[in-house]
């Protein structure tokens, strides 16, 4: 298969990923993505049984090894200010961000 991530697809991915790249970065990243895609295409040649199920964890979880779920109980954090102190910009207990653009949906 000769599928390739074209400059158009690449630019679309960059927008979706909320990135902004200079030309040098873009050239390197698109080249590497296409090299990785060649390696990934090896998967297409593997015969898979129709009833083969996906494995989301190598070790399967069952009653014997799954921990019981915690009670869904609200617990106060001992010091919320400590968490808020990590935010780049706050006003009292509000996190401040630039304007959120609004678009009219069709």
């Amino acid at each position: 298969m000769s599928e390739e991530i074209t400059p158009e697809i690449f630019n679309h991915l960059v927008t979706l990923a909320a990135l902004e790249l200079d030309e040098k970065q873009a050239a390197y990243l698109r080249r590497e993505l296409n090299q990785q895609l060649k390696a990934i295409h090896e998967l297409e040649a593997i015969p898979l049984d129709a009833d083969l199920k996906v494995t989301t964890h190598g070790v399967s979880y069952n009653l014997a090894n799954s921990p019981a779920l915690r009670e869904d109980t609200w617990l106060p954090h001992p010091n919320p200010d400590e968490i808020l102190a990590q935010a780049p910009q706050v006003d009292e207990q509000y996190i401040i961000v630039p304007d959120i653009p609004h678009e009219k949906l069709d």
Partner: peptide, 12 residues
């Protein structure tokens, strides 16, 4: 084509 197939290969 990619993600689900890779998860099946993980099963193999």
């Amino acid at each position: 084509q990619y993600y689900n197939r890779a998860l099946k290969v993980r099963a193999l």
